[in-house]
Each structure stands twice: as structure tokens, then as C-alpha cells.
Design a protein around this nucleic acid. Structure first.
Lengths: 337, 337
DNA sequence: GCGGATTGTCGAAACGTTTCGATTACGGTG
DNA sequence: CACCGTAATCGAAACGTTTCGACAATCCGC
């Protein structure tokens, strides 16, 4: 593989001139620069990554700790992973993927060996061993999601509380007084994933503030679980006219199918809102009003903040992304009885 | 961050002794080794990755080129990615994730800068620009899937042809004479993904060899698409008593639901086989006989072969993984009419 | 008690960059 | 014309490791 000496020889200059020409850190005569560029092209030269890491103190690699737990919605998870990789590349950073059991131990390994300049944490639980580790390592790091103890960390996430408030208000404004929430699979609440309870609790709180009657149920991911969830919530709240779905695409799709089978028309009989969904609700039947979960925005921001930490220009804080409400016709005013 | 000099100083030896103690490449006195181990622990020392890459010619990093295309089954894709990462770790290798537009250009970049020792390609199409690139780069590489031009490449994949033969024979052995195949979404065949036509064509060939009547249809991934596919195949083959599903989990689930609604009992009225599925068909209703797509085996083998290429002990070839048939009670003999 | 093998340790070179300080050439200013 | 600042280039040091060759100390068999 060609190295900088080869380039220097072919271009007839010293290696430092080559280095400066490529980095642009000192001025180089136009003719010299052209000869160097030609040599680089001819040899298909690229600076050796190891040497660059060793000398400069940047590796241009980030670690992405992304454990995939049972019950996690894989497409949503993948969306975040891809968004992180894409955002990192826009800053000329590559991404090292750490998963499963290596999500924690691998983090320590790559950090201590100076293989990465920074860390991104995905899918944090309310009590997550990775948060303490990240504090110890002292490397720039951004957490996507809000762990229980966010002290000393840079965290980014959709404002799930505000999203819940938004959904409740929307239904309240339309005159609905009895509203339901179908959430994630029970396993997800048990594992302590950070966002589901944030949404559920804010939903209940805002509804109470507005004097609405609510019911909540999780929904297991198979058709039996979905049927049971719908049955449960109808039994608890027979007069329900508004429903918020905080679950993955297949579950939302099954719920709509079930409602349809039972002759419940959306939005005529029931106003339905899809909350914090990372997929396109236009493909549902009918399309659902949605408060999107903008993976790209969270991830882009997380990477920006990691880069800012590398420059030392940012302090630990929690950054919440403002939710937006997208109308697609699945809500309507409560009919007077 | 502590370096090898610090360890040497604390242990009271030279740096070369530390290096040999850690690598085990020369014998070291037991007492010396203990002092060094203690120093390493005290300082939480780990060899600097950049320096190690520069000096040794190994980086202990693999590039994983894993573009996610529209229509690809995300959970299956993720299963492969995770399996690659896990297998790589078992050889002390980390994985750099290259996706989307970087799946090709990033490959060139990281290879030319000697950031990675080898390459793994996922989701290759029949004509894939990455295969030519990999040949040019001359780095150890393993392809998961079989591209149109596999010359000079190391490829690993489930033997989709044999899997198709297995499914057809199973149904034929049970006395079924008219069998159908519901495949992937049309978009996937159009994009040239490598395995769907391999399965489809082998299915047709083996059925013809055995004198069976067949019908094939792709299935779009929404409920309308599934309904249309089932309608199409029933219309083409009214006497169909055996059905093979080569599609993702939601689609298979919807198909079974639809059959159930229409009063078609599995296996009493229709024997159904789930082919090359990376998910657990026990969760379907009813559970389906399955020829599993063993992501972990393909990926483990791909990594093994990449490691073997690093040692120079392997030549380009295509390696097919023997499929297995798992009975779960969704097939039964053809009833005499 | 001597030669030769073995064991344990060390110093130094090399890997390919980046970057600091030095040097040369040259045009502009007083 | 002497002086200075600037542009363009170069040589050399440093980053932290691995590994080669050298050397001293110990052991073994006779």
C-alpha cells in the first residue's frame, strides 16, 4: 500500500509538504499542490489510519453501544442505528458497533485502548450500567434517551412527556372525555426501558389535570395479545371515544384491523392517534394522526453534541426535542350524545 | 491515559518485557509477570489501538457493508448484523458498520487507509458493484449471499436451492400434486436481491421434475397485498393443497390469519411450510413447519473464512449451508378425494 | 568445572503520520 | 540599498507499540 513517502517521491517534494498539502494547514504553491494531487491520484493514496490515530490524537471513530433486547421493536432500533451512522459520517466519523453483551464491556475496551474518540448510547434503561461507565471513562459521549440518573451526561431525546400532553390535549380539544392508551409490550415496561413509562405517566397526569377519564393497558405483540389489550381497554372504559397508540407498527396495524372487524369506524366512532412512531402511518388503514419519533433529528443532534464535546464547548445537560403533531384525518370532534 | 512506558516503570522492567509479557511471545519469569500484571491492573492499561495498528499489520477491525434497502425485512437484516458482530468478537475483532450510500464508497475508504483487516458483505444483489470493488481491494472478504458473479470471491449462504427442493419433496412425499409458493414483495425481485429468485426457480424446477402443478406469486407487505396474493394463487390453482411461504414474519402471520378467516384449516385442508425464515415459527398460529435460515451459522462461517483468508489458508469458493427441515405439525398427507 | 543450550531481559529500530522550528527566496517599505 | 515580513518548503522529532538481535545468568550432562 502506498504511503506518504511514495507520494512525496513521485511528486518530488518532502513528506511534510505532502502532509501540509493534504491537510491544508499551511499554504502550498499551486503548482506543487497539483503535482501532489496527481501523485495521490496515481497511487490511490490514503493516509494510514493507524499512524494518523497515533500521531494526531483523533481516531475519527465513534463507538455505538446498541444492545437489542427481546421485545424491542427491531425496525425502530435499526432506524436509530442507521441515523447515527449517517450523522457520524457527515462529520467524517466512522462507527464501531457494539451490541449485546459487548454493549458495556466493549465500551470499556475500545475506550481504554483509545480506539474511539466518543461514545453514543442507544436504548438506555432507567437504571443502566452504561451510564456510570461512561462517566468513568471521561470520553465525549451522548445518550439517546433519558436514563434515571442523567447527572453529568449529555442526553438527547424526543420530549415524550410533551408528546403525551399533546395527544391528550388534542383529544380533549375535540371534546373527548374518556380516552385510552395502548402501550408497549409488558416485557418492555418490566425491563425498564426509559421512554414508555415517561409517556404513560405524562399521559395520565395531563388527562387528570383536564378532568378526563383514562385507561391504560400494555399490549403483547402477537394477535392474541392485541385482541386481549383491546378487549381490556373497552371493558375498562366502555364510553371511550379517543385512543392513543404507543406501540410498534405491526401492533398498531393489528389494532386497526380489529377495530374494523368490530365495526368501529375511525374517526367516526373513535378518534385514534399514533404516538411517537418511527414509521409512516400513511401506510396504515386508515392513516393515523401521528406525533412522529424523529430518529434522524435525535441522532443528528447526539452526534453534533458529541462533536461539540470533542471541542470542549459543551457541558452535561438534557436536551429534549419538541414533538410535532401531524394530522392525517384519524381524529374528529366528539359527537354530542 | 497510561501507556506501556508507565507500566514498565511501575513494574520496574523495560517496555519490551512488558510487551512480551502481554503477548506471551517470549517466556517471562513468573515473578516478573506478576509485577507486570499488577501494574497493568493498577493503571488499567490497554495497548493503544493506533500504535498497535501501525506497528503490527493487524487492526483487528472488520468492515461490515450492510445497506438496508426499501423492502428488506429489517428484523432479518438486523439478525445478520448482530450475528456478524458476535462472530467477529469471538475472534477479538471489532466491526465498523458501513450502511446506505457508504456501503460501497466507505468500503474503499476504510480499506485504502488500512483501517480494517477484512470485509463482510451483506445483502448482495445479483449484480452488485461491491463485488468488483472487493476484488480490486484485494483484502480478505466474505460475502453472505451469492452474487451473480462470484468468481474470485469467498461466499457463504444457505443452500436456497436445496431448501426449495426439500420443501417441494416434503409436499410431494405427502401426496400433494398442486402446490403454491408465495414469495417476497415484488420490489425485492426487481431490485435483484440474490436469494429470492434462487428459491423460486429451484422450487419450480423440482416441482416440474416431480410432475407437480405449481403457481407462484410475490406478496406486497401490507394486508391488501397479502390478500391479493392469496386470492391470486387460489384463482390460479383452485386445487392447491400445499403452500410454501417464502416471506417475512408479518406477511406469514397475515396469510395464516386470512386462511383462518376463510375457513381453510392448516394442515387439514392445506399443508403449509415456512421456508428460509429467520424468525421462530412457533409464534405463528398454527406453528409452521420450517426450513430455518440460520443467520448465526452463515455469519459465523463467513467470519471464520475471513480469518482463514488472513492466514492465507483459503481460496475463493462458494460454500452452501445444508438446510434442515423442522416439523411442527403444519403438513399432513393429502386426503384421498 | 567446562562448553553449550536455555531462559529472561534489555536496547533500539521501525511502522506512517503530523507538526514545530528553521531555512530560503522574494517583493515591498522607508 | 538595507530591512522586514511573508510564502513555500524542508528536516527532524514525536506518537506507542512490536519485534529483532544481543547479552547475561542459569542449568545440564559429562
Amino acid at each position: 500500500m502506498a504511503n506518504i513517502h511514495d507520494v512525496a517521491r513521485v511528486a518530488g517534494v518532502s513528506i511534510s509538504t505532502v502532509s501540509y498539502a493534504l491537510s491544508g494547514k499551511r499554504s502550498i504553491a499551486a503548482t506543487t499542490r497539483r503535482r501532489i494531487d496527481d501523485a495521490v491520484r496515481e497511487l490511490d493514496y490514503r493516509a494510514n489510519a493507524g499512524a494518523r490515530m497515533l500521531k494526531g490524537s483523533r481516531t475519527n471513530i465513534l463507538a455505538l453501544s446498541a444492545p437489542l433486547h427481546a421485545g424491542t421493536d427491531t425496525p425502530a432500533h435499526m432506524t436509530f442505528v442507521l441515523a447515527v451512522v449517517t450523522a457520524a459520517r457527515s462529520f467524517d466519523y466512522d462507527v464501531l458497533l457494539l451490541t449485546q453483551d459487548e454493549a458495556t464491556s466493549g465500551l470499556r475496551r475500545v475506550a481504554r485502548s483509545s480506539l474511539v474518540d466518543g461514545i453514543v448510547l442507544l436504548d438506555v434503561s432507567t437504571t443502566d450500567e452504561r451510564t456510570q461507565l461512561v462517566r468513568e471513562l471521561g470520553l465525549p459521549a451522548s445518550v439517546i434517551g433519558i436514563p434515571g440518573d442523567a447527572d453529568g451526561l449529555v442526553c438527547v431525546d424526543l420530549d415524550f412527556e410533551e408528546a403525551a400532553v399533546m395527544a391528550v390535549r388534542r383529544l380533549a380539544d375535540l371534546g373527548h372525555r374518556e380516552i385510552g392508551l395502548i402501550g408497549q409490550a409488558p416485557a418492555i415496561y418490566q425491563r425498564g426501558s426509559n421512554f414508555p413509562p415517561r409517556f404513560r405517566d405524562a399521559f395520565a397526569a395531563e388527562a387528570e389535570r383536564l378532568g378526563l377519564v383514562t385507561a391504560f393497558t400494555p399490549a403483547a405483540e402477537d394477535s392474541a395479545g392485541v385482541r386481549a389489550a383491546v378487549d381490556r381497554i373497552s371493558a375498562t372504559l366502555p364510553g371511550m371515544t379517543g385512543l392513543v397508540l404507543h406501540s410498534n407498527e405491526p401492533v398498531q396495524s393489528m389494532i386497526l384491523e380489529l377495530l374494523n372487524q368490530r365495526g368501529v369506524r375511525v374517526p367516526h366512532d373513535l378518534s385514534v392517534i399514533s404516538a411517537c412512531s418511527s414509521f409512516d402511518t400513511n401506510h396504515l388503514n386508515p392513516p393515523l394522526d401521528v406525533i412522529p419519533l424523529p430518529a434522524d433529528r435525535s441522532c443528528t443532534r447526539a452526534i453534533e453534541l458529541t462533536m461539540a464535546q470533542l471541542e470542549g464547548t459543551v457541558d452535561p445537560h438534557v436536551e429534549l426535542i419538541e414533538p410535532a403533531y401531524v394530522e392525517l384525518g384519524s381524529t374528529s370532534p366528539q359527537r354530542s350524545r
